[in-house]
Design a protein around this nucleic acid. Sequence first.
DNA 1: ATGAAAGCGCTAACAG
DNA 2: CTGTTAGCGCTTTCAT
Lengths: 355, 355
Amino acid sequence: MKKPSLKDIAKITGVSPTTVSRVLNGKAKAYRISLQTNELVVQTASEIGYIPNQTARGLRLKKSHTIGLILPNITNPFFSRIACAIENAARSSGFSIILTDSQHDQNLEIESIRMLMSRNVDGLIVLPMGQDENHLILVVESGIPLVIADRYFPDLNCPQVISDNYQGAFNATEHLIDNNHKNIACIQGRQNTSVNNERLKGYKDAMEKHQLKVVSTFIVGDDFGTKNGYVSMKILQSNHPRPTAIFAFSNLIALGALKAMRENNMEFPHDISMVSFDNDQPLLEYLATPITTVAQQTDEIGQIAFKLLMTLVNNNEEKTDVFDKEPNIVILPTKIIKRESVTRPKSALSTTHIQ
Amino acid sequence: MKKPSLKDIAKITGVSPTTVSRVLNGKAKAYRISLQTNELVVQTASEIGYIPNQTARGLRLKKSHTIGLILPNITNPFFSRIACAIENAARSSGFSIILTDSQHDQNLEIESIRMLMSRNVDGLIVLPMGQDENHLILVVESGIPLVIADRYFPDLNCPQVISDNYQGAFNATEHLIDNNHKNIACIQGRQNTSVNNERLKGYKDAMEKHQLKVVSTFIVGDDFGTKNGYVSMKILQSNHPRPTAIFAFSNLIALGALKAMRENNMEFPHDISMVSFDNDQPLLEYLATPITTVAQQTDEIGQIAFKLLMTLVNNNEEKTDVFDKEPNIVILPTKIIKRESVTRPKSALSTTHIQ
DNA sequence: ATGAAAGCGCTAACAG
DNA sequence: CTGTTAGCGCTTTCAT
């Protein structure tokens, strides 16, 4: 026995499919359908266990009540929190989300976009892995609502939500400086991404503000992942002079750095201080050395991204050409969470500043 | 300018929609379509940027190439790893996943199932929050392929993937006993779930095997979340005698317990040893006291769940009544990862065993 | 080697 | 207050 359709209900009740449709969509009063008919339809619908076919509905209405979510890796708590917030907001609004994990792979990201468009999603929230925007521009041009989070593309004409990465990085660096550090290295994430650029700028500006020279060998790394944190830390340790403090551009970088420090038998934070971006690792508080982090408002990023998308989706119904309006950029403040990974440098010796 | 359809290609090329469809679905040779036509169609399709409408396709084919995934909380690394594995496997097979987070809420879980069915997913992977099975039975009866992970329902006629929770718990407990603990408490998760039952049984059996009495006040807790870990630990600390070791039934419980221990100024593990389930928190290694855990094979759980679902989906195409076959249950071994959270109890005094 | 026509399940004119 | 008709975009008989 196959799934009952709206037509089946019509047959059983003896009314037309139209009426059934209207009743089931709560348009009974709008069409002044008799209470009797209404009852009858609702009744039989539930009796035979009718479940509306959203696919058919979507085809007809050209609205799927589905949005696509593309992010670099659901396993990263920073992303999973955002995903969770989006999913919750979406459900409350009657939307489902198709999740795709790009695995930090540009091609997968592009493929996912295509796939999602072919599935007629009503909109797209993407947390791009890099800073390429061609595929994103195509989305905007195609007219399907798009919201970007965790990256900023000045030329991309769509709403975007990001943290104030510059200020966060500036504060992080200054916090290190306030603790007397002069040889401060940073382990970057993926270069030329807006996130990385801003954090780098924040770092540099803080250094310069305090008359500390920005040393190129103290700027290492090229990826937001754990491995880069590990490798970069190893490199920093092989250099002379060594830094007395590290600013890690992500939680995963910090994790990798931790591993390298441990292998090198370094005492943390006595041998080296650290502050990291991202505060979403639940165990952060209970580390041997709880790490001072720059917290991003992940829940808010998710919620705002979804709201922005909804505005777009709804606008889209009214007029088709809203795409010349200014990009709607939301910048969320960060907050530095001080823990125990920052101390004053051990000795004057180790803090000799390179001139 | 709206999205081009298959018909548009037909119009431009001058062939019929049928032919276009055949070409675009790679059935050119099967229908011996001339190379010329083939070329022409493929060419124009890419020229006008044609993207097939999967909604229409799904309606016609009654196959959406989409599966639903329901899990209790994507923010929990245990689940996000499984989700990641499923998503990857799905993508490789040309499937998309609609993700829903039940937030450990039975009603949301039920609602999600309905929603997913109405979206014509080809199958469902659910990690149920509890042990209610009525809504799951309905799914099986409706004929839509269903695979369960992380719970076991003996009466549910569908493939299921779980860890060997009994053995894992047994080993965890025995490890504590091997370290001379006698007053071993456990902080349970949600009661009457298969997972909890098995772990509890493993705990009890290990205790009994070593002639240790299972004390009811040493079995506390009722939820796999952080809060329960915290509260339960507080309760255990207020009891006399106090346990010298804790077996936490989940990573989140351990996290909550950690918080309580810290507040009570307990030295960990000197005042109290601990072993926990789940090894998916990335920072586990770097805790002040790295916790010994029972690792589940999360990637494998996800991969196997998806494979099982695919078998079902494909079988389903052949015959409609495969649902009388034996439930296909896969039990994956766990592995205890020893770290530093287990020591011998401090003094003979504190290990006095209650008789 | 290609097409015409029907229909998946639903809804929105348009008509009474 | 209700029904008839057409059609969303696609695939699949059945023809030729």
